[in-house]
Design a protein around this nucleic acid. Structure first.
Lengths: 131, 131
DNA sequence: TGGAAGCCTCACACTTATGTGAAGGTCAAT
DNA sequence: ATTGACCTTCACATAAGTGTGAGGCTTCCA
């Protein structure tokens, strides 16, 4: 599959796909004419990369954890150096606190929206003045 | 409280606090000599801002949702224009999907770590060769 | 009175993740 | 053969979040 198709199927711009390659997040073979040639598995891979980026992880961390998240769950124990494991544990914890923080704030936003909605319906029956 | 103290208590550099002010995320009174003067509530506020930033929200969104998340939960219904509510709902949904994505990936990392740990203990009793 | 420590503004610099455009090759169809 | 839709590399641009340093206040303490 050429870069245009990968782009369409993942929603990442061509530019961005070349950037991910430059960052070592994905790889491509080259056709005789120099065109990049990707295989199927990169569709999921790119989607995952974008999810992680959107979740706030920088490419250098993604590059590290990506091998562990490969589709045909082949565990590469060879990569599992103590430093690697430490990095992963640290990153897992960071992800957890990020999740907690996001959840708290999302809940706060939700509560606000609920309160506004309540206020609206009270106003609708003309019961209370607002702030 | 002067900027130095706020910096120490929040872990954000002075530079960053000035930047947040420039971005409209926090505000300060000024002393006669021009020094910034913050009150207590900004400690929590800054911590919250950093949490949201770390969670991937850009300052322009944080600026919008911050008033809704104020400590003494004063609901400012006056701010609740339809566009504002729409933005908040959109942002709440984005936060939810970010949480889901982060959770999935964190779980994948956890699974990998568990697998490595299992492999380690099997190795310890000399049962299996590795990949 | 002098120095250290804290503050101010301004400004240049860097990284990360992106967009955009130029100059040019390839390929398929007309 | 030319057009249009691909692809290539290179390079400049931008926003966000930071660092760092210059040049210059203030405040306090010895």
């Amino acid at each position: 599959m050429l870069i245009g198709e990968l782009s369409e199927r993942t929603g990442a711009s061509r530019r961005l796909l070349r950037y991910y390659e430059e960052q070592g997040l994905i790889a491509s073979r080259r056709c005789q004419n120099g065109y990049r040639d990707y295989d199927e598995r990169f569709v999921d891979r790119v989607v995952q990369i974008r999810g992680l980026l959107d979740a706030g992880l920088p490419t250098r961390i993604i590059r590290q954890i990506l091998p562990c998240l490969d589709q045909p769950r082949t565990i590469h124990f060879s990569d599992a150096t103590p430093e690697m494991i430490a990095t992963l544990e640290r990153e897992r914890d960071r992800m957890t606190s990020r999740i907690d923080c996001l959840s708290r704030n999302r809940d706060a936003v939700s509560e606000y929206l609920d309160a506004v909605r309540d206020n609206r319906s009270r106003e609708a029956v003309g019961t209370e003045p607002d702030t």
